[in-house]
């Protein structure tokens, strides 16, 4: 089969078109947000919020409300609970995160097991890319666009918060509010990505693109472009692979991201383990040649 047909064939199905749209939207939003998460060191926070939304999703199905509402409520509640436990007890932040998100995740699993419904645990945990309804698509696109718009418009403030919250405070901005904004956007982003890759793998989309971009550039502004491009490209490649290999789509997308990260980790010109040596060697050759 010619390459063009290989690429076009999956697109002839409506459900595949929706799968592509949902995943690329999720990838772009996650890719942008992940730049701040990896720089602040909030990877665990991303993991926590993505797991903590599980009971919200189950309850939303149960009550017949859009799953985004339930997920958002529990995402925000998880962040608030983590902050509460950390600030009112001697428990350190990572432990507070661990306690809160695993408990909420467990609550979700218990809810699924006792609620007689057609809710498929597998779909929530690992995504249900091929079963995206038109309503789901509208939800993801709407939330995705809003989240992305806020991230892009407030990018300079968020970067200031990530780099030097004390200075933010000194010039009369409110670093606590900026931190809360970023966490709220994290909860929204998790909701956007849930359908595409599922609760368990959302964190991959939240971390890998930003971490990869961080190895490729020393400019934050460029990171904000590189990261979503990598995320979107990996998503598209991953879905094609899953289509032709008949493999789990969420897993395939994340595997592709992991593979790209590995290549960059090894061969990035400045910050890659091998690339760094090659660059230095090339420079040395050039210097010798000039002498």
């Amino acid at each position: 089969m010619p390459l063009v047909d290989l690429l076009l064939e999956p697109l002839s199905y409506d459900f595949m078109q929706r799968a592509f749209l949902v995943t690329v939207t999720a990838a772009i939003v996650c890719g942008v947000l992940s730049c701040w998460l990896v720089l602040i060191g909030w990877s665990l926070m991303g993991d926590a919020v993505s797991h903590a939304v599980l009971p919200g999703v189950v309850l939303a199905y149960l009550l017949g409300t859009p799953f985004a509402v339930g997920a958002l409520v529990f995402g925000v509640a998880a962040v608030a609970l983590i902050g509460l436990v950390r600030s009112t007890s001697r428990v350190k932040e990572d432990a507070a995160i661990g306690v809160v998100f695993t408990t909420l995740f467990a609550l979700g699993i218990v809810l699924i097991s006792v609620v007689p419904s057609q809710t498929d645990l597998g779909h929530i945990l690992f995504g249900n890319l091929l079963g995206v309804s038109v309503a789901d698509l509208a939800q993801v696109l709407g939330l995705g666009v809003v989240t992305l718009a806020i991230l892009v418009l407030k990018r300079r403030d968020l970067t200031l918060y990530a780099f030097d919250p004390t200075h933010a405070n000194a010039i009369g901005l409110n670093p606590k509010a900026l931190g809360a904004l970023l966490l709220g956007l994290l909860a929204l982003t998790v909701v956007v990505a849930l359908q595409a890759v599922g609760v368990v793998l959302v964190v991959a989309m939240l971390i890998i693109p930003g971490a990869t971009a961080y190895l490729l550039t020393d400019r934050f502004a460029r990171m904000l472009v590189i990261s979503p491009i990598i995320a979107a490209a990996c998503s598209i490649v991953g879905i094609y692979l899953s289509y032709y290999l008949d493999a789990a789509s969420g897993g395939m997308v994340v595997l592709t991201m992991g593979a790209v990260f590995t290549l960059v980790y090894l061969f990035a010109p400045q910050h890659g383990v091998i690339g760094r040596r090659l660059t230095t060697a090339a420079r040395r050759r050039q210097v010798t040649a000039n002498v």
């Binding site: 780099f163 901005l173 934050f220």
Partner: peptide, 23 residues
């Protein structure tokens, strides 16, 4: 965090944020 990917110019520009608009 000295590994933060910001230029000297970017950092100095952060001094101006208090006078700038929403974005």
């Amino acid at each position: 965090d000295w590994s933060f990917p910001l230029s000297v110019y970017d950092v100095v520009m952060m001094g101006r944020y208090g006078f700038q608009n929403f974005t």
